[in-house]
Design a protein around this nucleic acid. Structure first.
Length: 317
DNA sequence: CGGATTTGACCAGCGC
DNA sequence: GCGCTGGTCAAATCCG
């Protein structure tokens, strides 16, 4: 295999379309890209978007990342995914995996619903009957979404949070069903959808919606070694912090002249990466080990490739 | 027995 | 207006 193929970034919402080859700047790097799109002024933009509500919807809408699938004949993976939902796209990561992410807001626009998220949350808890009336005011409000593509054999990856499956639907144009999960923590309205890429069954696309309002249950400490120091573990923080950390990891790679694409998280021990932003929180801790550990031979030898491609695959190549 | 999952039905949004 | 599709609900069922 060679490296990643050209990465294309496309905006589905009418914004300009970009495309560049991997060796390039932001466009090549989905992550950074996300940041750039969201916020040219600050590198934290992306994550913040995810964590914060007051961002510009238009910007989010612009974010559409197509990531080449490094690992296989699948530059299409990204493409395919992208083209279905105008939301977000990301990349693979899995128990062996790699992942990329991008954000979008599908519902930001709906915000007209003068209802705050809070209200929405409460309403969601109600019955269908009650939901009906709700629509009278506006479209259903949705939180920004954040999708990850993960190369994994298991659909539902561990990310440290507890999820309850509340639905499954067949997906048009795909033989694989899409599963709907909701964070089991009371008061936490985060949801995620998990589905396999139809063009590359080994890739799981996880889309997160909303932000956790609590730290990961499995995470002993909500603090990420200082980097993202947010006094309160606000929902935003919970969500963003991990990603910020990712960013720094990315930068690390950069300094090593490693292509930063898909942040991958290998999860030994089955602590699979869960492919979602939320998960990012928990799995980052693990990830940290890989990226920061002195013996990051992985990085040296294969760079992120290692992350993107299952070790056994690398051997083959 | 309690919590999680499955699954069919229902509803809303969108495109034609 | 109608049909299609995505998303959610909730009863039934499964599992530890």
């Amino acid at each position: 295999m060679e490296r990643k193929e050209a990465v294309k970034v496309e905006n589905f919402v009418g914004s300009p379309t970009f495309s560049s080859t991997t060796d390039h700047v932001q466009t090549s790097y989905p992550f950074m890209q996300g940041f750039d799109f969201v916020d040219d002024k600050s590198s934290l933009g992306f994550m913040e978007l995810l964590g914060v509500q007051d961002f510009s919807p238009s910007l989010l809408d612009m974010i559409q990342v197509q990531i080449p699938s490094v690992q296989t004949p699948s530059a299409q993976v990204a493409t395919e995914v992208v083209d279905s939902p105008p939301e977000v796209l990301n990349q693979p990561a899995t128990p062996n995996s790699s992942s990329i992410s991008s954000a979008s807001s599908e519902g930001l626009n709906d915000e007209p619903a003068n209802k705050g998220v809070d209200n929405e949350v409460e309403e969601q808890g109600k019955t269908k009957k009650e939901l009906k009336p709700k629509k009278t005011n506006q479209k259903r409000q949705r939180e920004p979404r954040f999708a990850f593509m993960t190369k994994s054999e298991v659909d539902h990856l561990e990310d440290g949070y507890r999820w309850r499956k509340y639905g499954q639907k067949a997906v048009k144009n795909s033989p694989f069903p899409r599963s709907y999960y909701r964070c089991t923590t009371a008061s936490c309205n985060v949801k995620k959808r998990v589905e396999r890429s139809f063009s590359d069954p080994s890739v799981v696309v996880t889309t997160h919606e909303g932000q956790h309002t609590h730290p990961s249950p499995v995470m002993p400490r909500p603090n990420f070694s200082g980097s993202a120091s947010d006094s309160g573990f606000s929902s935003a923080a919970a969500f963003a912090m991990p990603m910020q950390r990712r960013l720094s990891l990315y930068q690390q790679h950069q300094s090593q002249q490693q292509p930063p694409f898909p942040l991958v998280s290998l999860s030994p021990l089955g602590f699979g990466y869960n492919g979602n932003a939320t998960n990012a929180a928990s799995y980052l801790q693990h990830e940290k080990r890989f990226y920061t550990s002195p013996g990051s031979a992985l990085l040296k030898d294969h760079g992120l490739l290692q992350d993107l491609v299952p070790s056994h695959m690398l051997k083959e190549e």
